[in-house]
Amino acid sequence: MAIQIEAGNKADVDRTPRGNAVISVKEQMQAWRNADLFFFPLISVLIGGAAVFLCALTVGDWSYWMDWRDRRWWPLVTPLLLLALPAVATYAFWRYFKLPVAATGLALGFWLSQIVSRYVNFHVFTAFPMNWVMPEVWIGAAVVLDAVLLITRSFALTGLVGGMLFGLLFSAMNWPVVAPMHMPVLLGDTVMTLADYMGFQYIRTAMPEYVRIIEAGTLRTFGTHVAPVSAFVSGFFAILVYYVFVWIGSKGSRPSWLGKLV
């Protein structure tokens, strides 16, 4: 671990350490290694937890129920919210440690927390079939985002290229989970997708069908291309989201002080 010290902080002059905490290079390296061992999992879990909370309360419904995963809203809004906290953490990891791993770390923690939560809460607690409540996977999109940062070494270019790819790849990377749910099924003489059918079958007392926010619009104009079009729009917005949240990250990770409380 190596960290850049903010020089010239007047209040720090009186705060020189009383003595030495380490007395050899070996001890020094050990201390730095300890700090490394704490830092990476700590930030991943902390900010990953905040990300789980943020996404549950904004785009949770698209994530919980397969019949919410339409071609219009889900590819559009979910990546935008998923990108927010990785962008914040990316700033801290890259600015202070030059580590392009924040998005991947968060995506892993997020996915682990989600899969445990879906199994415990939606499968065991409320008895839904697991394939009906599968969480989205966005580890691949996060790896791409980090890789772009590693290659370009620039937040501006990462937002432009990585943000676009993040929005664009999200629904494509989730296609294996969603595709079987788009098979047509007949109920009476009504054609439904398997997802619609299961939404009718597996009773949700307080979640009636009309609450779904899906495919509002005529869709006929775009035919089967509506999902890629939504993904592109999501990519454009993702660029903006990335810039805004990297800026928030620069504020959130600033080690600032207040000299007097009152």
Binding site: S24, E27, A31, Y96, S253, P255
Partner: peptide, 20 residues
């Protein structure tokens, strides 16, 4: 997310403390 800033503060001091 502000906890990141706090952790950075701690790491700055730990760096200071653990330098020979």
């Amino acid at each position: 997310v502000f906890l990141i800033g706090f952790v950075i503060q701690c790491l700055q001091r730990m760096y200071e403390l653990s330098r020979v």
